[in-house]
């Protein structure tokens, strides 16, 4: 799977997150801003990298502004942003 344009999903409401993915030429660039970065920053990074690995996404730039979202929320926002950015019309 390839990231060919910019995709964005989510909100900055409490317990949600907003994720922007866009193309990159140097592998994965992941930027995390989170209200719970001290406690869950590493966990969120692992979650995102794991998702990209599973989808075979190698070159991607991602920014997440997290307001304390649960894993399910982060993953669904991520999936939605990646779908837009990869030009897929159907589900992953």
């Amino acid at each position: 799977m390839e990231i060919i344009n910019t995709g964005q999903a989510g909100t900055v409401e409490s317990s949600d997150c907003i994720i922007t993915v866009s193309p990159s030429e140097n592998g994965m660039e992941i930027n995390i801003e989170s209200t719970v970065k001290l406690q869950f920053g590493d966990h969120i990074r692992d979650l995102i990298i794991d998702f990209f690995n599973k989808k075979g996404i190698v070159n991607v730039s991602l920014f997440i502004n997290d307001r304390g979202a649960l894993d399910y929320v982060i993953l669904s926002r991520l999936e939605s942003a990646v779908l837009q950015a990869s030009g897929y019309k159907e589900g992953l």
């Binding site: 719970v36 001290l38 406690q39 869950f40 920053g41 590493d42 966990h43 649960l70 894993d71």
Partner: peptide, 9 residues
């Protein structure tokens, strides 16, 4: 189980 275990400060 829902939230995950936070890294201690």
């Amino acid at each position: 189980k829902l939230t995950g275990t936070p890294k201690p400060l």
